[in-house]
């Protein structure tokens, strides 16, 4: 028997006004997206302290997605621009230390982009599946290689 296929856990922090709505739309349109995605509804992409992204990785997520409104469309005017800078910071720190920065993803998905939502979730899940389990969850543990 072959080994059970690796099923990554991907935590999604999705803005209430766009990406969360897109997730709902994908659902009602019967567009398939993988159960690997664990969505968390947030009021704006800017409400997610960047440390929560890496904290999700340490708690066992194989990847995280921050989903916000397209530039110009943030419900709170500029939250997504701030979120973008924070993601730049997180990715740079991860890369600088030799961690895999691709395990943090920022995407702009509006409420009407159900198909984009499904596509991004499918593609990212495939991508992480290929990469394999994240090593970050073993930070400060006795496990890992």
């Amino acid at each position: 028997m072959s080994e059970k296929e690796f099923e990554p856990v991907i935590v999604g922090f999705f803005c209430n006004w766009c990406t969360s709505a897109a997730a709902d739309l994908a659902g009602t349109s019967r567009l398939h997206y993988p159960a690997n995605i664990r969505p968390i509804r947030v009021m704006c992409s800017s409400t997610v302290d960047p440390v929560y992204l890496i904290r999700a990785l340490q708690e066992g997520a194989d990847a995280t997605i921050l989903g916000g409104c397209h530039p110009g469309d943030c419900h709170y005017i500029s939250g997504n621009y701030k979120a973008r800078r924070r993601v730049v910071i997180v990715k740079t720190v991860l890369k600088s230390l030799g961690f895999d920065e691709d395990r943090v993803l920022l995407e702009w998905i509006s409420g009407s982009e159900g198909p984009k939502f499904a596509r991004v979730m499918n593609e990212y899940t495939e991508y992480i599946k290929k990469k394999g389990p994240s090593d970050f969850k073993y930070v400060d543990s006795l496990g890992g290689e």
Binding site: P50, Q58, V93, K137, V139, D140, S141, L142, G143
Partner: peptide
């Protein structure tokens, strides 16, 4: 899940978090 954890659990995270902030 992690085959044993070190305590406290937020030691390294503290430094990475500070770098981020």
């Amino acid at each position: 899940d992690k085959n044993g954890i070190r305590l406290p659990t937020d030691k390294t995270l503290f430094h990475i978090g500070r770098l981020i902030h």
